[in-house]
Write a protein that binds this DNA or RNA. Structure first.
Length: 149
DNA sequence: ACTATGACGCTTC
DNA sequence: CGAAGCGCCATAG
């Protein structure tokens, strides 16, 4: 998780969900937030480059306050408005294949990421018609699904 | 083993 | 567009 976040270039952002996706865990977005919460204030991990799906800063942690996050982002040239929101279309970043290969992910996880990213593409006309269950991404049957140990 | 709790996200209304 | 409802999943009690 920290390896992925650490690859986000200055001035760019990822959402919690995207970070989870990059790890082959499409439904663990909350955990990403929890993990970032555990970081100390002098960590090298650029925690401020992760926002929610609206492009809005959503931290409540006093250690890493919303204002602190906004300040760090602005220092990197990101425009953050007064509602602590930024333009995701403009600043969103995603690791390319080369970066993914360099993350020291377990081969199984890497494969899971591949299938997830491939599945994410044709979302245009393959979607809908079927009543989608509210709540989250449908559970996958692929290698990405979690099994109890 | 069980329950409550989020720096989340999707669908519905 | 905003709020409500619910699902998810690792952690903390």
């Amino acid at each position: 998780m920290y390896a992925v976040v650490s690859r986000i270039p200055p001035g760019r952002v990822m959402t919690y969900g995207e970070v989870a996706l990059a790890l082959g865990m499409p439904r663990a977005a909350r955990v990403v937030g929890g993990a970032l919460h555990l970081l100390g204030s002098e960590s090298d991990v650029p925690w401020h480059r992760v926002v929610n799906r609206h492009g809005m800063i959503s931290t409540r942690c006093p250690e890493h306050s919303m204002w602190e996050q906004a300040a760090r982002l602005r220092a990197e040239g990101v425009v953050v408005d007064d509602t602590l929101t930024l333009d995701l279309a403009r600043y969103r970043w995603a690791p390319d294949r080369g970066v993914l290969a360099d993350l020291q992910l377990a081969p199984e996880v890497l494969h899971a990421v591949d299938t997830l990213l491939a599945r994410a593409e044709p979302a245009d006309d393959a979607r809908a018609d079927q009543p989608r269950r509210a709540g989250n991404v449908p559970r996958s049957r692929g290698p990405a699904s979690r099994r109890r140990l």
